[in-house]
Simulated scan of single mutants.
Amino acid sequence: MSESQPSRDHEPHAPLPVEIPVTENIADAALDLKTQVVRFVVTGGLSAVVDFGLYFVLVQVVGLPVNVAKSISFIAGTSTAYLINRRWTFKAEPSRARFVAVVVLYAITFSVQVGLNGVMYEAFPDEWWRLPLAFVIAQGTATVINFVVQRAVIFKIR
């Protein structure tokens, strides 16, 4: 770069998302489908614990409305999932374009999850299993959408 050209390091840009440190070399070859599915499910399980745990506490203990509680818990759960999936499941380098694509995907799955959860919660009788069953149906639907789009599109973005 010549002295007359400005340094690109000083141009304003969107910050990268928070990174989770790993010891594995992220440049290793991409993982096969079976390994990605297993890792995605493990990560999803952990993220679902974060999501449902917070959802349950916000509805049952704090007394928030179902859709408000689900909105907050969704953000916590999906943030957990993205951070782990990017580094461990899909072994992807940091990318602003990918991060923006994930935000768009999560906005879509947010609508699916919160909407479907609300519909299922209202459709079921007022029994002890209503809250967890509505959650599982909404979570399962969003999980399938997330895996397919992340594997086929988002983690192929450079």
Rank of each mutant, 00 (worst) to 15 (best):
W128C: 04
Y121T: 00
V100I: 14
W128Q: 11
R130C: 05
A134L: 10
P94L: 01
R86S: 13
S95T: 03
R98I: 03
L116G: 08
F90I: 09
T109N: 14
F99H: 12
Y121F: 15
A123L: 14
T78G: 11
S79K: 05
E127M: 11
Y121Q: 01
S95V: 04
S79W: 12
K91M: 13
A123V: 12
V104T: 12
L105M: 07
V119S: 11
E122R: 15
T80M: 10
V102G: 08
S111N: 09
R98V: 00
V100P: 01
A76N: 01
S111L: 15
V104F: 10
V119W: 14
A81G: 08
R86P: 00
E122H: 13
N117D: 09
Y106W: 11
L105D: 01
D126I: 10
T78F: 06
T109H: 02
Y106G: 09
K91N: 09
E122S: 14
N117Y: 14
S95E: 05
A134I: 06
Y82F: 15
F135P: 03
W88P: 00
R98H: 03
A101G: 12
F99E: 08
L131A: 08
P125C: 10
F110W: 15
P94N: 00
T78M: 12
Q113E: 10
Y106I: 10
V102R: 03
N85A: 05
G118E: 10
T80S: 11
P125E: 14
V119R: 09
P94V: 02
T109F: 02
G115A: 09
V100H: 05
G118T: 09
W128M: 10
P125W: 08
I108Y: 07
S111T: 13
Y106H: 12
A101F: 01
V104R: 07
F135H: 13
A134P: 06
P94S: 02
V119F: 14
T89Y: 00
E122Y: 04
P125D: 14
R130A: 12
E93R: 10
G115L: 06
F110G: 06
F90Q: 06
L131D: 11
V119P: 03
T78Y: 08
K91W: 02
R86H: 04
M120Q: 06
P94H: 01
Q113A: 10
W88A: 05
A76R: 02
L116H: 10
V112W: 01
E122Q: 14
A81T: 07
I108H: 04
E93T: 08
V103N: 07
V102W: 07
V112N: 00
W128Y: 11
T109G: 07
A101T: 09
F90H: 03
F135R: 05
A97N: 07
G115P: 07
E122G: 13
N85H: 07
A97C: 02
L83F: 10
V119E: 09
R96I: 12
I84C: 00
V119N: 04
A81D: 05
L116T: 15
N85Q: 08
W88C: 01
V102A: 14
D126W: 08
A107W: 04
V102S: 13
A97K: 15
T80N: 13
T78E: 11
A97P: 03
S79N: 12
E127D: 10
I108M: 12
A107L: 14
Y82W: 11
L105I: 04
I84W: 04
V104E: 06
S111C: 13
V102M: 11
L105C: 05
G115M: 06
P125G: 12
K91D: 02
K91L: 13
A92F: 00
I84A: 01
F99M: 15
N85C: 05
